[in-house]
């Protein structure tokens, strides 16, 4: 979760800073498919249980991407912070997942 230029928080305000201006809802999303190599590994891992590392990484990357797109929108709106950020993951089709991030763009002092 880089992009330090814009402060991100999932609370209603950035702790320690005052909200000055509201820019409205910003969001970003990406749909990712698992690739075949990872699928085969995950299939094997499914046998014995435990963490599916390939998928964990894949979803982390995708979430990062969704977050980046949200930040881009916030930048475009002239905000310097995004508050009340939420994430949503849904498997839209077989082998594909959507990662969605949304929040409220604001200007903090």
């Amino acid at each position: 979760m880089r992009g330090e230029a814009i402060a991100i928080s999932n609370t209603e305000e950035i702790p320690g800073r005052q909200v000055r201006e509201l820019h409205g809802l910003v969001s970003g999303s990406t749909v990712r498919a698992k690739h075949i190599g990872r699928d085969i590994m995950a299939g094997l891992k499914n046998l014995v249980g435990g963490e599916l590392k390939g998928y964990t990484e894949l979803l982390q990357e995708a979430r990062q991407e969704a977050l980046e797109r949200m930040l881009e929108q916030a930048r475009g709106a002239g905000a310097n912070a995004v508050v009340n950020v939420r994430f949503q993951t849904s498997s839209v089709a077989q082998g594909a997942a959507e990662l969605f991030a949304y929040g409220t763009a604001v200007t903090v002092e």
Partner: peptide, 26 residues
């Protein structure tokens, strides 16, 4: 809670996360 305890003097704040994908055995 969305606010830190009163006695914390906040210097900086930022989003953090952790995730895991896990499966059950056969």
């Amino acid at each position: 809670l969305s606010l830190p305890p009163q006695d914390w003097r906040v210097v900086r704040a930022g989003l953090v996360d952790g995730s895991v994908v896990i499966s059950i055995d056969h």
